[in-house]
């Protein structure tokens, strides 16, 4: 999980910077990281706040972005079932793209549930602490980072590092093409609603691709 932890640091800085430049107070900017604890949701919320979007649009966009946690939660659930509910509730709070990507293979491959859960818990806790420190760094240092560095580009790079490895089969390729074409074609929609619509379009295309693929086999 170490490459994920170090890789998250610049992303956390960008989240701190984005929250401040969207008009959030330093305390609120830190609270976003403490409570929301999701880079994607925080960046989108900050961009929409800066654009003056109404609360309902911000909440809806963050909700759609959070749908991927449902998938991660469902994938982890069978492995966590034997654990005490207090541990499950704590593990769930630490569930992120990075913690999931780093630990799901371990849960699947290892018969030792306690060891895998400990790995998830330890890695997730380190990620959470580093995320707070990175956000704090962004809040404090945001104004001294030269804009020419284009630090905000680490956000798409971070998501790209999660996205590219998913491309292992044809239906996923079709999902990506549909979402990519959709998000560009719908770019004129206000308040980044294109992101939600393109995401749903990609999911629909994936379901259709699965069906057609099954029929062909």
């Amino acid at each position: 999980m170490l490459p994920a932890v170090v890789g998250m640091f610049p992303f956390g800085i960008v989240c701190g910077v984005a929250a401040i430049s969207a008009g959030a107070s330093p305390l609120a900017a830190l609270a976003m990281s403490l409570i929301m604890f999701s880079g994607a949701a925080q960046i989108i919320a900050a961009q929409l706040l800066a654009a003056g979007a109404p609360f309902a649009v911000i909440a809806l966009s963050c909700f759609v972005v959070s749908l991927r946690f449902l998938m991660y939660s469902a994938a982890l659930a069978p492995y966590l079932r034997p654990l005490d509910h207090r541990w499950r509730n704590l593990l769930a709070f630490l569930l992120t793209d990075q913690a999931f990507a780093a630990s799901i293979h371990r849960f699947r491959a290892s018969g030792d549930l306690r060891a895998s859960a400990s790995y998830f818990l330890g890695g997730g806790a380190v990620l959470w602490i580093m995320w707070q420190l990175a956000t704090l760094a962004g809040i404090l240092l945001g104004s001294v980072i030269p804009p020419a560095w284009q630090l905000e580009f680490v956000v798409p790079l971070c998501f790209l590092s999660l996205l590219a490895p998913l491309l292992r089969d044809q239906p996923t390729l079709i999902v990506m093409i549909a979402a990519a074409v959709g998000v560009v074609a719908l770019d004129a929609m206000p308040m980044r609603l294109s992101m939600i619509c393109a995401g749903l379009l990609g999911i629909l295309a994936g379901i259709v691709a699965d069906r057609v693929g099954v029929r062909r086999d």
Partner: peptide, 13 residues
């Protein structure tokens, strides 16, 4: 399909 779809629509723009 949610992760591939959502991450694509965040990264591409």
């Amino acid at each position: 399909h949610v992760p591939a779809a959502m991450l694509t629509s965040i990264v591409v723009p």
